[in-house]
């Protein structure tokens, strides 16, 4: 067996060589440096660093807020995707393009804009404040920012799945006497379930690592509103590199686990579809 099949097209050596060189230089060597750094402390020190109460609290806050945000997006993202694929209404194309705004907007800008809106004197904050609901500088604020940032993942993953659905299947369900709700619950929903799960997981994975849009609205109180990326930032500012690296390794492990989950869902849905 040869490593590469013969081809009459030129440039394999050059492009492959450059790709591997540049990939190693920019991505692989720096990431390997992180693993080596976290290996410079003993296992006990590593364990102590990643299970410190303040660190554990930040895992819980990040995980919980990401889970809530991804769930909110799963519900409303499904509604948005459905409306954009199935119905027509004035301004639909503009609304469709706007869904990508959280991707295109620099996160620092989103962060200060959301903080301005939800501060006690902001556009929404002033209505919530008399009701005793505080959003800015609380965990609720973190959830709002993570919902903003995760929305396009759910919508953009669901849209192609909804477009690919055959109308015939729905017609068959209707002709067999199913109500519209039954058709949705029994026919449409199972078919788009893998896409919904993938979108949910992508939004969740993004939320776990998000920094820019959260840092302004969260207030950064240890044990209360300090997310994992902020905690890493704080450790770095204290020149506590080894502990920062240890926490980063745990955070990276979590996002790779979510990615693995996404791959399993997609493999499973392909097998199911075939």
């Amino acid at each position: 067996m040869t490593l590469k099949q013969h081809s009459i097209l030129p440039g394999f050596g050059l492009t492959m060589g450059f790709t591997l060189f540049y990939l190693s230089l920019i991505v692989l060597i720096p990431l390997a440096g992180l693993l080596l750094k976290s290996a410079t402390i003993s296992w006990d020190q590593f364990y102590a660093a990643v299970t410190d109460p303040q660190v554990v609290a930040s895992y819980k806050i990040t995980f919980g807020a990401s889970l809530v945000a991804a769930s909110v997006n799963a519900v409303f993202g499904l509604a948005v995707a459905w409306v954009l694929v199935r119905y027509s209404f004035p301004g639909k194309n503009i609304v469709d393009a706007m869904v990508d705004l959280p991707f295109a907007m620099p996160t620092a800008v989103s962060g200060i804009a959301l903080t301005a809106i939800y501060a006690p004197n902001g556009w929404i904050g002033r209505w919530l404040d008399p009701l005793g609901i505080e959003v800015a500088y609380t965990q609720l604020g973190i959830m709002v920012a993570l919902t903003f940032i995760g929305l396009p993942f759910v919508v953009r993953t669901l849209q192609p799945a909804l477009e690919d659905m055959d109308v015939e299947i729905e017609e068959a369900a209707a002709s067999l006497g199913a109500t519209r709700l039954q058709t949705f619950v029994r026919v449409i929903f199972p078919a788009i379930m893998p896409a919904l799960l993938t979108g949910f997981a992508l939004a969740f994975a993004r939320a776990l690592g998000e920094y820019g849009s959260v840092v302004f609205i969260s207030g950064n109180l240890p044990m209360k509103t300090q997310i994992v990326p902020l905690l890493i930032m704080t450790k770095l500012e204290q020149y506590n590199y080894a502990e920062a690296a240890a926490i980063a390794v745990v955070a990276l492990g979590a996002s790779f686990a979510v990615l693995l989950f996404i791959n399993i869902v997609q493999w499973w849905s392909r097998r199911y579809a075939a």
Binding site: V27, L31, L34, A205, L208, G209, E210, Y211, G212, V228, P229, L230, I232, M233, A248, A251, L252, S255, F256, L259
Partner: peptide, 8 residues
Amino acid sequence: PYSVSPVI
């Protein structure tokens, strides 16, 4: 790089 948090 997509799956690495920006801070990391």
